[in-house]
Amino acid sequence: MALALRSMLRSVARKIQVRGYADAPKEGEMAFTFAAGNKVFYDKQVVKQIDVPSFSGAFGILPKHVPTLAVLRPGVVTVTENDGKQSKIFVSSGTITVNDDSSVQVLAEEAHPLENLDRSAAQEALSKAQSEFNSASNEQAKAEAAIAVEVAEEIVKAVSA
């Protein structure tokens, strides 16, 4: 009787111990890494949902998303944390990786929280990029200016929204 009780206690203790690793992502949770060249926003943190803009259309990632690769387009990444807090971060370009162990990596070239962006500065950048686009002499300069225009447009759109 005592032996059975002890073994039961032990198994309970083990269960509690297992539960003790609260920070490490468990089965069915997604470890989210969001880093840019300038800053790390999330490092293997468990979050509820991530909405990302990609070239094949914007999509949301929930735990146990099917593994995929995608390329970020300029836009706003929305991260919903476990406590429901949402943070919106603007990204210029980059990659999204969803692995089969439910870990998600979003790597951006440049990323900034939306509240750090200034509308008038964005507008200015947009007009500058547009004039550069119009005065571009060769194909490559034109393509580069087109990208600048696209990013600036998205920033303006994101800030005004």
């Binding site: 890494t33 790390v40 089969d100």
Partner: peptide, 17 residues
């Protein structure tokens, strides 16, 4: 320190796939 998660994230796919 800021670039480490970035680099690790970039290699992850090659590892996991």
């Amino acid at each position: 320190r800021a670039a480490r998660p970035y680099g690790e994230g970039a290699v992850q796919f090659y590892d996991k796939a």
